[in-house]
């Protein structure tokens, strides 16, 4: 698998978010809006997402960089850069 492929990253991220918030249809989500708002996730869900990203992509996102992954679009860009 090519972990830097944008399509792969997007698919995996949506899988992670679907597991955390199965009630949210990803097709209805605005990628430029806050993930916490679009997926209705709280800080515990957000932490679960970060933990899962580490497991899937091997990328440990420091707390100080949470500001760079606030939207789905920003998160995908961040992961593409980190790979």
């Amino acid at each position: 698998m090519n972990t830097s492929d944008p399509e792969f990253i997007k698919t995996e991220i949506l899988k992670i978010l679907n597991k955390i918030a199965p009630e949210i249809d990803p097709d209805t989500v605005d990628p430029q809006n806050e993930i916490t708002y679009e997926f209705e996730i709280d800080s515990m869900d957000f932490l679960r997402m970060v933990v899962k990203i580490d497991e899937v992509f091997g990328i440990e996102i420091p707390e100080a960089e949470y500001g760079e992954i606030t939207t789905l679009e920003k998160l995908l860009t961040y992961l593409a850069k980190s790979n």
Binding site: S43, M44, L47, V50, V51, D54, I61, E63
Partner: peptide, 17 residues
């Protein structure tokens, strides 16, 4: 909290909650 969390693995991070 930031200082504490920087010493921990992601899954052990403590949230303000």
């Amino acid at each position: 909290l930031r200082k504490e969390n920087s010493k921990r693995s992601i899954s052990d991070r403590v949230l303000p909650a």
